[in-house]
């Protein structure tokens, strides 16, 4: 069974893109700003139509069987698509109702727990931090357990801690058998998460393979001895105690 196959051409933005994503895998579409990543996601989620070419998601054609596609997917766009005026719980209940599920209240409470938002659940989303919003956004995408999830730059604009939280959530998704198509401009994100990586450049896929396959494109590594310095990320995460539970002793009052 294949998750989706597609090939289409669109003037300028996409000039013939072919991708195959295996069911239950994480596929990263890597590219710089303006490479056309969002366009690909929008076409796959039936928000845009390709000029030519066809795309199938979960076996359904995105043009002729758009309603079936929408049943099978959920989209987490570049900007957290949450309702600021509603509370976190109300957002979840809203989506559960729109997916016509039984017992939306229980679904909402379960997801709040899973994404550590139970305490914030009754607060308006306008009061949430960027990371909380993103978690809520992803939680909203999981309602109804769609077999395919699109994450369009899920960590853009997040601080390192929130980023790790999102990564964790994505990994859990794939472990549960969900097919994830992730777009990102962060190389390490693709490296961390993806089973396969494709690089979209100027509207074309220029490479597509596993991380190891991509590494083989370059000449074999030379052995060099480099003094091991902590990265700034290591320093930052150590100082702020990045959810390590234990390191909260040394007077970290701000």
């Amino acid at each position: 069974m294949q998750g989706l196959e597609k090939s289409f051409k669109q003037l300028k933005v996409l000039r013939g893109v072919d991708i195959d994503v295996a069911r239950g895998s994480i596929f990263a579409l890597l590219g710089s700003n303006g490479a056309g990543k969002t366009t690909v996601v929008k076409i796959l989620s039936t928000l845009l139509k390709a000029d030519t070419g066809t795309a199938r998601v979960n076996g359904f054609d995105v043009v002729t069987q758009a309603a079936d596609v929408r049943e099978s997917i959920s989209l987490t766009g570049q900007f957290a698509a949450v309702d600021e005026i509603l509370s976190g719980r109300e957002n979840l209940v809203l989506v559960a109702r729109l997916r016509h599920l039984e017992d939306p209240g229980t679904i909402a409470d379960d997801l709040l727990r899973r994404f550590s938002l139970t305490e914030a659940g009754s607060r308006r989303v306008a009061t949430y931090s960027g990371g909380m919003r993103r978690r809520l956004d992803i939680a909203m995408s999981l309602i109804g357990s769609p077999p395919v999830v699109f994450l369009d730059e899920p960590t853009t604009g997040l601080d390192p801690e929130a980023r790790l939280e999102v990564w964790q959530a994505v990994k859990e998704l794939a472990q549960g058998g969900t097919t994830v198509l992730l777009t990102t401009q962060y190389l390490d994100e693709a490296e961390q998460l993806a089973d396969r990586i494709a690089i979209l450049h100027e509207g074309r896929i220029i490479v597509n393979g596993t991380l190891d396959e991509l590494k083989q494109l370059l000449p074999p590594a030379e052995v060099e001895y480099v003094e091991k310095q902590p990265t700034l990320e290591d320093v930052f995460l150590t100082l702020v105690g990045a959810r390590t539970d234990s390191a909260r002793t040394d007077g970290e009052q701000r």
């Binding site: 929408r70 900007f79 729109l98």
Partner: peptide, 13 residues
Amino acid sequence: QGGIFERFQSMPI
């Protein structure tokens, strides 16, 4: 603007 419109449009409603 907020993106919630796109979320609704990508759902089976």
